[in-house]
Lab assay of single mutants.
Amino acid sequence: SSGAIIYTVELKRYGGPLGITISGTEEPFDPIIISSLTKGGLAERTGAIHIGDRILAINSSSLKGKPLSEAIHLLQMAGETVTLKIKKQTD
């Protein structure tokens, strides 16, 4: 049976990049997913974020019904501590 787990990851960026690339579309209900991780970057080092994971919220702002451009804007405005709500498929 296919299921999913949902969890929250807190990234402290200390002025540096998060080390993630996200992808999606401008269709508001398409998923926003992690499309790549910078090798040795902040997100990869947590061990908790993987390519293909879906981002449900950024700093408690839900991405439900929001296009990719809004998600990118939220990441850019997120500040030093970025909290990502992640949904991972478990097959």
Rank of each mutant, 00 (worst) to 15 (best):
G65S: 08
L18C: 15
I22K: 00
G3D: 15
G47A: 08
S23G: 13
K64F: 10
H50Y: 04
G41T: 05
T8Y: 07
K12C: 05
G24H: 09
L42N: 14
I5A: 09
I33A: 12
L56Q: 04
G16P: 06
G24I: 07
K66F: 02
S2W: 10
Q76I: 03
T21F: 02
G47P: 03
S60F: 09
S35E: 01
T25S: 13
R45Q: 13
I5N: 14
E10F: 04
E44D: 10
T21N: 12
I33R: 06
T25V: 10
K66R: 13
E10L: 07
A4E: 06
T25F: 00
S2G: 04
G16H: 06
D53F: 00
G16C: 04
L11P: 02
R54A: 10
I22Q: 02
P67T: 12
E70R: 13
D30L: 03
G47E: 09
G15R: 10
A57E: 12
I32D: 04
A43Q: 03
P67K: 11
L56G: 01
S35D: 11
N59M: 00
G3Y: 09
F29T: 12
I22S: 01
V82F: 15
T38P: 06
G3T: 14
E10H: 07
I34Y: 04
T8K: 01
K39C: 05
P67V: 09
F29W: 13
K64W: 10
T8A: 07
L11K: 10
Y14T: 15
T46Q: 13
G52H: 05
I5W: 07
L68S: 07
Y7N: 13
R13C: 08
T8M: 05
D30Y: 05
A4M: 13
L37H: 00
I20E: 11
I55L: 14
G3L: 06
P28M: 07
E70N: 11
P67L: 05
I55C: 02
E10Y: 07
P31H: 08
G3V: 09
S60C: 12
T21A: 06
P67S: 11
E44F: 05
E70D: 15
S60M: 07
P28F: 05
S69G: 05
E44L: 04
S60H: 09
S36D: 15
S36A: 09
E70G: 06
G16D: 10
I6V: 06
K39Y: 04
T8D: 14
S2N: 06
D30R: 07
T25A: 11
P17H: 12
T25Y: 06
A57G: 08
I55Y: 00
A57T: 10
Y14D: 13
I22C: 10
I20W: 05
N59C: 02
D53V: 00
S1L: 08
G24M: 10
I72N: 12
S61F: 13
K12Y: 00
Y14L: 15
K64P: 06
F29G: 13
G40H: 12
S35K: 09
P17F: 05
L56E: 08
I34V: 13
S69F: 07
G16A: 10
L37Y: 12
P67C: 10
L37Q: 04
I34R: 03
S61Q: 11
D53W: 04
D30F: 08
S1C: 06
E10M: 08
K39W: 01
S35Y: 07
G65A: 11
Q76N: 11
E26F: 02
S23H: 14
G19C: 00
Q76G: 10
D53E: 00
L42W: 06
G41E: 08
L56W: 02
G52S: 03
P31M: 08
P17R: 08
L37C: 05
T8C: 05
L42P: 15
G52M: 03
S23I: 08
E27F: 14
R13Q: 04
D53A: 01
T81I: 12
I32R: 03
D53L: 00
P67Y: 06
G41S: 10
E26A: 05
G65D: 07
S1H: 10
S2M: 14
S61C: 13
D53H: 04
R13A: 15
G65R: 06
Y14E: 15
Y7S: 12
S60R: 08
L18R: 04
T81P: 12
S61A: 13
A57W: 01
A57Y: 07
A4Y: 14
I6F: 06
R45N: 11
G41I: 01
I32A: 00
G47L: 02
T38Q: 05
T25C: 12
P28D: 12
A57V: 03
N59T: 01
P17A: 08
S35A: 08
Y14N: 15
T25G: 13
S35G: 05
S23P: 03
S1W: 04
G15F: 07
S60E: 10
Y14I: 14
S60Y: 08
S36R: 10
A57C: 09
L11D: 08
